[in-house]
C-alpha cells in the first residue's frame, strides 16, 4: 500500500513537470538564457571585420560610466520615473474616486479616462503631435490667442522631456484608475457612513480611512508604474527621437539606438544588465513587501 502511494506521488510529480515543461522551456529560451547571455556578451569588446571581439572584462561598463550620454540618459529616466509615477498615481486615484461617485454620465466619464489605455503608444504620440506642433498645434493656438509666441515644445531641450512625460501620464493614469476602482468597490459603504456619524469630514475620511485601505493597491500600481517607466518609450520614436541633443532620451530607447542604429551591441548589453539589476531590486523589494503582508494576514 505504502509502495503504491509512493509510486502515485512520483507519477504526479512527473505529470506536474511535464505540464509545466513547455512554458518553462520557452521562458528559459526568451528570458533566462538571454539575461545570462546578455551579461556574458557585455564582457566582450565590439568585434569588427578586422578585429574579432575579445574578452574585455568590465571595460564596457567603464565606457558607459565615462560617457556623458549615459549620465544624461540615466538622469532623464530618473526624472521620467520621478514625475510620471506619482503624478499618474494621483490622477488615477482622483479618477477612481470620481468614476466611483454617483454622478451623472458616470459611464461616459469612466470610458473617457480609460480610453488612452487601449491605444497604442505610437498612436498616442501621433495624437499629441497635434497638440505640440509649433505654431499650428493646439497648445500654441491657445497660448497664441493670449499673445504668447509659438513654442517648439518638442524641439527645445527645456520642454522636450516634459512633453514626453505628459503623454505617458495621459496614457497610463486611466489604466491605474481601474485598479483603484476595483479596490474601492470592495470597501463597504458602512465605513463611510460610520465615519460621517463620527463627524469625520471628507478629507479626513479620505486620508484616514480610504488611503490606508488602498495601500496594497498603491503598492501594486507603484511597482507597475516603475516597470512602465522603463518600458514606455514607444512615443519617443514619433515625438522626439530622444532629442534635441539627448534631452529627452530614455534608457530603453538608448539601448535600442546603440544596438540597432549604431550596431554596438556590447555596450547595449552592458546597459541592459544595469537595467536588469535595477528591475531585480524592484522585484526583491516587492516580494519582500508582499511577504510581509501575507505574514500580517
Amino acid at each position: 500500500m505504502n509502495e503504491m502511494a509512493r509510486l502515485q506521488k512520483r507519477r504526479l510529480a512527473l505529470y506536474g513537470w511535464m505540464l509545466a515543461a513547455p512554458a518553462l522551456a520557452l521562458m528559459s529560451l526568451f528570458a533566462f538564457y538571454p539575461a545570462i547571455a546578455t551579461f556574458w556578451h557585455s564582457l566582450f569588446s565590439r568585434g569588427t571585420s578586422r578585429r574579432p571581439s575579445v574578452f574585455a572584462g568590465f571595460e564596457n561598463y567603464g565606457d558607459l560610466f565615462a560617457d556623458p550620454t549615459f549620465w544624461t540618459v540615466a538622469t532623464n529616466n530618473l526624472i521620467y520615473a520621478g514625475v510620471t509615477i506619482p503624478v499618474s498615481i494621483i490622477f488615477a486615484l482622483v479618477m477612481a474616486l470620481w468614476a466611483n461617485a454617483h454622478i451623472p454620465a458616470r459611464s461616459f466619464v469612466r470610458s473617457a479616462y480609460f480610453t488612452p489605455t487601449i491605444l497604442p503608444m505610437i498612436a498616442a504620440a501621433n495624437l499629441w503631435l497635434f497638440f505640440y506642433t509649433p505654431d499650428l498645434g493646439v497648445i500654441d493656438q491657445i497660448t497664441g490667442f493670449f499673445g504668447a509666441s509659438p513654442t517648439n515644445w518638442l524641439g527645445q531641450p527645456e520642454t522636450a522631456l516634459a512633453s514626453v512625460i505628459i503623454v505617458t501620464i495621459w496614457k497610463e493614469a486611466g489604466f491605474f484608475m481601474i485598479f483603484y476602482l476595483a479596490a474601492l468597490q470592495t470597501i463597504p459603504p458602512d465605513l463611510h457612513e460610520a465615519a460621517r456619524i463620527e463627524g469625520a469630514g471628507r478629507w479626513t475620511y479620505t486620508r484616514r480611512v480610504l488611503l490606508p485601505l488602498l495601500m496594497p493597491t498603491t503598492i501594486f500600481v507603484f511597482v507597475n508604474a516603475m516597470i512602465n517607466s522603463v518600458k514606455l518609450i514607444d512615443h519617443l520614436f514619433i515625438l522626439t527621437k530622444g532629442g534635441p541633443n539627448n534631452a529627452s532620451k530614455l534608457i530603453l530607447y538608448w539601448i535600442w539606438e546603440m544596438a540597432f542604429a549604431y550596431f554596438d551591441s556590447p555596450h547595449a548589453a552592458a546597459m541592459t544588465i544595469l537595467v536588469l539589476l535595477a528591475l531585480g531590486l524592484v522585484a526583491v523589494a516587492q516580494f519582500r513587501l508582499v511577504e510581509k503582508r501575507t505574514h500580517y494576514r
Binding site: 539575461a35 546578455t38 522603463v230 528591475l279
Partner: peptide, 13 residues
C-alpha cells in the same frame, strides 16, 4: 519573469 521584460532583452532575443 514579470520583471525581466522582453522589451529589455531586445538585443539578445
Amino acid at each position: 519573469q514579470l520583471f525581466i521584460l522582453p522589451e529589455v532583452l531586445i538585443v539578445e532575443n
